[in-house]
Nucleic acid binder design. Structure first.
Lengths: 261, 261
DNA sequence: CCCTGTTGGTTTATTATATGAACCGATGGT
DNA sequence: ACCATCGGTTCATATAATAAACCAACAGGG
């Protein structure tokens, strides 16, 4: 593996749940020598991608990531464009809306929005990397990836997160076909017990599926009427985000969604 | 130089004015071999920090920077916290407000806000790296850096951007002392002709000056009354941003600003 | 107070890794 | 048909990354 990849792997260790990491921890987590880790972090820090803070000299992400993000958003405003739609979706459905995008072959959380309606809401703060096979967003996105990508995902070990998580490859392939045919993915309790969700794929300017939009609710609240509402709202929001990204909805999907809504 | 630094240097080549760069250009700009550049970019792309787009296979910043920024803002909300204050400052003064932060030893633009009042406004879109000696923000920040840092900046060649850009080291040191004594920096035409500006330093939780806040106006509009208004508003906004960053205003500055306002 | 196990940081010889010149096929202009 | 460019690839060479060992400093525990 290249040195650069090792350094970037270090960056990936920072999560919402673990925002501050000391040198030794970092080396252990990444499985690299402490001296190596030190040198890599020094280089990252020089560039401002990480910074050392406080007495423990722990590291955290630095200000440079902000600048890069501002630059990226100025050119390709994905987050800024999607946020209002995401919030409107949460409000309209009264549930938690969730936006994720493909980064380096993994589906990662970009933002979420909560409705003010319910006291009990599905929180997804900690879900940073979404398993494709166990989430509606994951299935929605995976269904519209190239066959090679799907094969790679399905070839890897599929973790069983709850008692009802589907891990059978054949069954998952059948579900993917279903998602392709309906333009929408549904999931019940596969990621977390008692949580049901629906998701749609999002497309970029190249026409490639690069993210997913989902609405998650407590399974007890997922009545037929609520499902109809969510389906109608999420397809509308999905189309809106895709077009706001300069993306083009595949014609097949556009007709599917129009028929439902 | 380490390999990682070379890769990160490549990232730094992307600017608002030059958001898309081809492989050969990239190699030329960075002064590295094309093969090396290719390998580095491939590694960066694998991580999602850059992506290839369109027919020319040009590169641009990738979605991973977004994710990192979201993570950083969740822990240290610098931009989110400062934006409303920045906009209010622009509105209150009727001029262009500008926020910059220290990244890797350079002062870089993070955000700006325009007032709706005037038809002619000072645009600073393209200023990505602010020269310390020629801008009010630069002087405001530099004045509150460690002596070693100041010496390093003043030892480097100081570019003459306009006819009135101060490049004499002794004179600049005198100005820095003046900034330290007043808690505010002023500049007239040193960066761009006919543009005057005032700036204040911003401090982080460690009490270190890590950024600057400025208001820029056409010199013709910078009347004594307007200067008083800007001075009053910018110190208030500066204090607000600093505290919203969890920072502590140095007591000396706090009293200076209170006396003026 | 010593003992032990941390921590962040530094040094060293060893070797794995990055490098750059040359080459390739494709593309676009003249 | 030509020439210059493009993105991408190859491979011998040499540079730059590595890992173990070692610091000094700190924090409990007995």
């Amino acid at each position: 593996m290249g040195t650069v990849s090792k350094a970037l792997e270090l960056l990936n260790l920072f999560t919402r749940a673990r925002p501050l990491i000391g040198l030794s921890d970092l080396a252990r987590l990444a499985g690299v020598n402490k001296a190596t880790c030190y040198r890599l972090m020094t280089e990252l820090a020089e560039f401002g991608l990480v910074e050392q803070i406080g007495t423990g000299r722990e590291y955290r992400l630095g200000p440079a990531v902000l600048r890069l993000a501002v630059l990226r958003e100025a050119q390709v405003p994905m987050r800024d464009a999607a946020m209002p739609v995401l919030q409107a979706l949460a409000q309209a459905t009264g549930e938690t809306a969730h936006l994720s995008i493909l980064i380096g072959g993994a589906l990662r959380t970009l933002a979420h929005a909560y409705a003010t309606a319910h006291a009990t809401k599905v929180t997804m703060e900690d879900a940073e990397v979404l398993p494709f096979h166990a989430t509606s967003s994951g299935m929605a996105v995976l269904a519209f990836q190239p066959e090679a990508f799907q094969a790679g995902v399905l070839a890897a070990p599929l973790q069983r997160l709850t008692e009802v998580t589907e891990t059978d490859v054949a069954a998952l392939r059948a579900r993917l076909a279903q998602v392709q045919a309906s333009g929408i993915a549904e999931s019940a309790g596969g990621y977390e017990s008692d949580v049901s969700s629906m998701a749609v794929p999002l497309f970029d300017a190249r026409g490639q599926c690069c993210g997913g939009l989902s609405v998650a609710a407590l399974s007890s609240r997922m009545t037929p009427a609520q499902r109809d509402l969510i389906r109608s709202e999420i397809t509308r929001a999905g189309a809106e985000i895709t077009t706001s990204w300069g993306g083009t909805l595949p014609p097949a999907i556009a007709t599917l969604w129009r028929a439902r809504a």
